[in-house]
Simulated assay, not measured.
Amino acid sequence: MVPVRLTGPRLAIREYHHTPEELDALHALYSDPEVTRYLPFEPRDRETCADQIELYLEEAMAEERHTYRLAVVRREDAEDPEDALPVAHASLTLGTYRSAYLGYVLSRPVWGRGYAGEIAGLLCGFSFGALGLHRLAARVDVENAASAKVLTRLGFRLEGHVRHDLYKGGVWRDSYQYALLADEWTGPSGPSGPRQGG
């Protein structure tokens, strides 16, 4: 396993640790109904979150890694990002033809600070740089205007309206699909995006 660590101005993205503190942080995120409102699952209990961290670590150890589910921490919270507790979650799911879906979820106390844009930007830089991907896509609930704005600011283009994309809570929900190509990415650190490492 080559651990992922992406560093931005205020945030760092790294692998999860299987500790009680990290489990508490993930549970705080995924047990909040407001946070999971636009996610494809209902709020999760602590046991399910513990299973999730185990899965994330298994995926990280895979010989050929296709899924990156990563902890997002604030750099101000600790000298070393490995010691800071997650305030958000970031994900990349690789597909065919050098493509991937990206995602991010933030805990409610850090909403409204521009962190989603920084997370998505770091994922773009990693995808088009280190991973050599050609296309990134994201699905956004049609009511999630804040997330749509984040993607648009990064250069993602709206590709379509996906009807009845998700069945949750007894209701069908629609999504917008956005995508960004490698040659369209002009992130904060140039064509290869933010740096990986320290």
Rank of each mutant, 00 (worst) to 15 (best):
A90C: 08
R195M: 02
V105W: 00
T186A: 13
A130T: 13
K168I: 10
L23P: 12
Y115T: 10
K149M: 09
P9N: 10
V110F: 07
D183V: 07
A145C: 05
Y167K: 07
G95N: 01
D24Y: 03
E82F: 02
D165H: 12
Y115M: 01
H17K: 11
F126T: 00
G190W: 08
F41D: 07
A148L: 01
W111E: 08
Y178R: 11
N144C: 06
L55C: 08
V110Q: 06
E42L: 13
H134G: 03
A62Y: 06
W172S: 02
R46I: 00
D141T: 04
G112M: 09
P81S: 07
Y115W: 03
G197H: 01
Y167V: 00
T67K: 15
D24Q: 12
G129M: 01
V72I: 07
S99N: 08
D83R: 15
P40Y: 02
A100L: 00
D45T: 03
S99K: 08
R113N: 09
D51G: 14
A12Q: 10
S147N: 07
S107M: 14
K168N: 08
A25F: 06
Q177A: 12
G170A: 03
E21K: 13
P194G: 05
P9S: 13
L92E: 01
Y97A: 15
E82R: 13
R75S: 01
G121T: 02
D141P: 12
D32W: 10
D80N: 12
G160R: 06
S99Q: 14
Y104S: 14
E63G: 13
R139I: 04
Y38D: 15
E184Q: 14
R69F: 09
R113L: 10
L123S: 07
P9C: 02
I53A: 09
E59P: 09
V4C: 07
L57C: 03
C124P: 07
D24C: 09
Y178A: 00
D83F: 10
H18T: 02
V87K: 15
R65C: 00
A120T: 06
A28R: 08
P43I: 04
P40G: 14
H89D: 06
V162Q: 14
A84P: 15
V105D: 01
H89T: 00
G132P: 03
L151T: 04
V142K: 12
R69A: 14
L94W: 05
G155D: 13
L181R: 01
A137T: 05
L29K: 08
C124R: 00
E143T: 02
Y178T: 06
E15W: 03
L180S: 03
E64T: 02
G112P: 10
G170K: 02
A28Q: 09
A60I: 01
H17L: 15
V110E: 04
V105A: 06
T19Q: 03
L57N: 14
A148F: 00
E22V: 03
R139C: 00
L70Q: 11
H27S: 04
R157T: 03
E118V: 09
L11K: 09
E159W: 07
G117N: 10
S31H: 13
A28N: 09
V87I: 15
R46W: 05
L154I: 13
R5Q: 15
G197K: 00
Y38Q: 12
R5C: 13
L154K: 04
F126G: 05
V110W: 06
L11T: 11
D183I: 10
